[in-house]
C-alpha cells in the first residue's frame, strides 16, 4: 500500500504536502532574516555583543598569557613569542633563498641562449710559459 508506485512511477509520499508548507514557511523566514541582518540595529547589536565579549575576556586572556609565559620560563621552554620570532627569521631566509634562486634562473637562461659564449677563466686557460714549465719540471725533479 504505502510503497505502491504512483502514476508517475514515484512512490506515494505522505510527507509531500507538509514539505510544501515547510518550504513556503522557510522562504518567508529567510526573507525576514535577510531583512533583519541588513538593518543598522542588527549591526549595532552584533557589534556591541562582540565588543562586550572582547572586553570581558581580555583580563582572562591576559592572565592566562602571563601565567603561561611564567610557566614556560620556569620550565626553560620557548614561548610563543620565541617561535614567532624564529618563524619570521625563517621567512626572511626563505626570501633570500628565493632571490638566489631567481639569480640562478637568470644565469641559466643566459647560458641557454644560443650563441652565448661563456667568458673563459684566464687562469685556467693560460698556457704554461717556458719559465713556469721549467719551474714545474724542477719541482718534479726534487720529488
Amino acid at each position: 500500500m504505502g510503497d505502491e508506485p504512483a502514476n508517475d512511477g514515484k512512490r506515494f509520499d505522505p510527507m509531500e504536502p507538509w514539505r510544501g508548507v515547510r518550504d513556503v514557511y522557510m522562504d518567508a523566514w529567510a526573507k525576514t532574516m535577510v531583512d533583519m541582518v541588513n538593518t543598522e540595529a542588527y549591526a549595532q547589536a552584533s557589534g556591541a555583543m562582540l565588543d562586550s565579549y572582547l572586553t570581558v575576556s581580555a583580563p582572562f586572556r591576559e592572565a592566562i598569557e602571563k601565567a603561561m609565559l611564567k610557566t614556560l620560563e620556569q620550565l626553560a621552554m620557548p614561548s610563543r613569542a620565541d617561535f614567532v620570532s624564529i618563524a619570521e627569521r625563517m621567512t626572511n631566509i626563505e626570501m633570500k633563498l628565493d632571490d638566489l634562486d631567481a639569480r640562478l634562473d637568470s644565469i641559466h637562461t643566459l647560458l641557454a641562449k644560443p650563441g652565448f659564449a661563456p667568458r673563459t677563466d684566464p687562469r685556467r686557460e693560460q698556457q704554461p710559459t717556458k719559465k713556469t714549465a721549467k719551474v714545474k719540471q724542477a719541482k718534479r725533479g726534487k720529488k
Binding site: 557589534g47 556591541a48 572582547l54 581580555a58
Partner: peptide, 17 residues
C-alpha cells in the same frame, strides 16, 4: 559595510585579541 562600520566594529580591538 554596515557591519564593519567604525561606529559598531572595532577592528583594532578584534586584532589585538
Amino acid at each position: 559595510a554596515r557591519w564593519v562600520d567604525e561606529r559598531y566594529f572595532d577592528v583594532d580591538k578584534v586584532l589585538a585579541a
